[in-house]
Computed example of a mutant assay.
Amino acid sequence: MCLIFVCGLSFAQQKTFTNPLLTSGADPYSTYHEGYYYYIHTQQDRLVLWKTKNLADLKTAEKTTIWTPPENTMYSKELWAPEVHMIDGNWYVYFAADDGDNNNHRMYVLENTSGNPMNDRWKFKGKLSTPSDKWAIDGNVFKHQGQLYMTWSGWEGDENGRQDLFIAKMKNPTTMEGKRQKISTPTYDWETRWEGGPDVLVNEGPQYLSNGEEVFIVFSGSGCWTDYYTLGLLQLTGEDLMNPENWQKHNTPIFAWSKENGVYAPGHNSFFKSPDGKEDWILYHANDNSGDGCGGKRSPRMQKISWNKDGTPNLGTPVSTKTILAIPSEEK
């Protein structure tokens, strides 16, 4: 009787958790669909998808490699920051990749029309680019008032020296439409900070966020290899997302490292809602130690966020790995 009882407890869903969710995993992203979260992060040489009812249970969740790129192509290596989306009834994964030369990073997309993203029915649909066809990483796809957009981090020209944020309309989930527009460039000290080296001019990892009225893009500033990797905020002040003048950048970061909590370089985030739709949460990666850099020590974490009276997001402070958190609220 005791053994059965204990076994029963072992299969019960955990109601609390501590970060990190996995020992390693940069650029975490998830999509909630029909009772399950579909989660993905950077693996460099392949795309792996997790399926779970509770993101706190990622360590034991079902997972499968959905796509491995063919060798000797312009998208065979350095697969970064994948995102999984359900758009108009079909599944899509967006990711950046190159041929081993960072100068050739561009955005690409896969499509799965089978209804089941955990199978091998993924088809490579090609490169996503505007007519300028410049360096691009960290694409985030979202719908606003029925129009599909992508925002990403890119170079204005053909040389590495500064990463700006761009936006473009999409004709459909696999095709860009028209020219890109630059909506942010790194200017504040927290977007350029790297102690012990030259200024690092980086805006990357843009993520759409809305409270139902206000529209924002949360992005990462400074180099991911520094302890000072941090999140900033763009706020839409007009109706046209393609007008750069309608994006106002807040002059201070909204989520930064916490030496007190032992969390360094928190960034490249995404957002999700709880299963009951009542809570907003942030997914992000961070390091446990100063100087851990931009490699395999970055681990995925999550915590609940709130909203300020002025409608802006309040992300709080990155919590310690010792902090016990309640899982996202469930359907009753």
Score class of each variant (00 low, 15 high):
R301K: 04
R301W: 04
M302D: 05
M302N: 01
M302H: 01
Q303V: 01
Q303E: 15
K304T: 09
K304R: 13
I305G: 12
I305P: 03
S306Q: 14
W307G: 14
W307L: 02
W307T: 01
N308P: 05
N308V: 00
K309F: 13
K309I: 09
K309Q: 14
G311F: 14
G311L: 14
G311D: 13
G311K: 11
T312I: 08
T312D: 01
T312L: 01
P313S: 08
P313V: 01
P313F: 14
P313E: 03
N314Y: 12
N314R: 10
N314K: 03
N314D: 04
L315F: 04
L315P: 00
L315T: 00
L315H: 04
L315M: 04
L315S: 02
L315E: 05
L315D: 02
G316L: 09
G316R: 11
G316C: 09
G316E: 06
G316H: 06
T317V: 06
T317P: 07
P318T: 12
P318E: 11
P318V: 05
P318F: 11
V319P: 10
V319W: 02
V319R: 02
V319N: 10
V319F: 01
S320Q: 09
S320D: 13
T321L: 04
T321V: 08
T321W: 02
T321S: 11
T321P: 02
T321Q: 08
K322S: 10
K322P: 00
K322M: 07
K322F: 05
K322R: 09
K322E: 13
T323I: 03
T323Y: 02
T323E: 11
T323G: 02
T323P: 00
I324F: 00
I324T: 12
L325S: 12
L325H: 00
L325M: 14
A326K: 12
I327S: 14
I327N: 07
I327P: 12
I327H: 14
I327T: 14
P328Y: 12
P328T: 05
P328A: 08
S329Y: 00
S329P: 06
S329M: 10
S329R: 08
S329H: 10
S329E: 15
S329L: 05
E330A: 08
E331H: 06
E331Y: 06
K332A: 07
K332N: 13
K332R: 12
K332V: 09
K332P: 15
K332H: 12
